[in-house]
């Protein structure tokens, strides 16, 4: 790892100030992606501004069906939250399937979505839940937040503070994890709101990152069942091909994972 200057921010405002004063500053959340990237010398920030001392950014609040998760809440904390499990079990399952136990003790929801890895789990969950991303400056709909591979709508100096959503009537998540990395080779989150609106988001498959699948949404709006998935034609256009599998395989995984998510 190259030299870096470490800062421990005491508040979001303090983090913003330290970030803007740094020449090539980078926020440090759980560090489970950033630190390995720095160790490989694929990233060389001049300054790291650690957010883990900011208590305001940590915690899960469930009020009725309204859910707010602080940006620095770890995957383990989401996975282990009994209140959240009652209203939105799929997000709890999703968090409990990220990485491994030691990674889940440090990795955070804010870090995950700010990085927007095309194979990360949370982007699919938040997009399908129609979540709102809260920052120190504004609120951003999940549909507008995830803008492509490792890119988001966040501006310079903008920090994710929380995410919020209304728990849907029913939802599910299933992924086909890469056997080595455990990242999703394809993951599908399905959600049906109380208003009957169905949202389906796919991670790990799109060559431009997470996306919503209109065909599956239309079919599941009419018939919330795995039989409905059978009738949908999923195109391989715009899907990734890599050493693990090609686009056609991923197209099939989208249907297979959608069915498992409904089960």
């Amino acid at each position: 790892m190259y030299d870096v200057t470490y800062h421990r921010a005491t508040s979001v405002d303090d983090a913003v100030a330290r970030l803007s004063a740094a020449s090539e500053g980078q926020l440090l959340a759980g560090g489970q992606t950033l630190l390995p990237t720095m160790k490989h010398r694929l990233a060389a920030p001049s300054d790291l501004i650690d957010l883990r001392g900011i208590a305001d950014l940590v915690g899960v609040r469930v009020s009725g069906r309204s859910v707010t998760i602080g940006a620095m809440t770890t995957h383990a904390a989401v996975a282990g939250n009994a209140e959240l499990a009652k209203v939105c079990p799929a997000i709890v399952k999703l968090a409990g399937g990220i990485g491994d136990p030691a990674v889940r003790h440090q990795g955070t929801i804010g870090g995950s979505i700010a990085n927007n890895d095309p194979a990360a789990d949370y982007p699919a969950g938040l997009m399908a839940l129609g979540a709102t991303i809260h920052t120190n400056r504004r609120e951003i709909a999940a549909d507008d937040f995830f803008t492509g591979l490792f890119s988001t709508a966040l501006d310079e100096g903008e920090i994710v503070t929380a995410v919020s959503f209304d728990a849907p009537e029913t939802c599910g998540y299933a992924k086909f994890p890469n056997p080595a990395s455990r990242y999703a080779m394809t993951g599908v989150f399905v959600a049906k709101g109380g208003d009957g609106v169905v949202r389906v988001a796919v991670t790990g498959a799109g060559s431009d990152g997470v996306f919503r699948h209109e065909g599956l949404e239309q079919a599941l709006s009419k018939d919330w069942s795995s039989a409905a998935v059978d009738g949908v034609s999923v195109s391989a256009d715009g899907l990734m091909s890599d050493i693990h599998c090609d686009a056609a395989y991923r197209a099939n995984l989208i249907k297979a994972m959608a069915k498992r998510a409904l089960a």
């Binding site: 470490y6 421990r8 390995p36 790291l48 440090q106």
Partner: peptide, 27 residues
């Protein structure tokens, strides 16, 4: 491994298992 995958470096920090190769001492 030094790539955060093998878990040979697991220690407990504040009672929770973490990978000490993927944690800064300063943190």
């Amino acid at each position: 491994c030094d790539t955060s995958q093998c878990g040979a470096c697991v220690v407990h920090v504040n009672g929770r298992a973490v990978k000490s190769c993927t944690t800064l001492a300063a943190s």
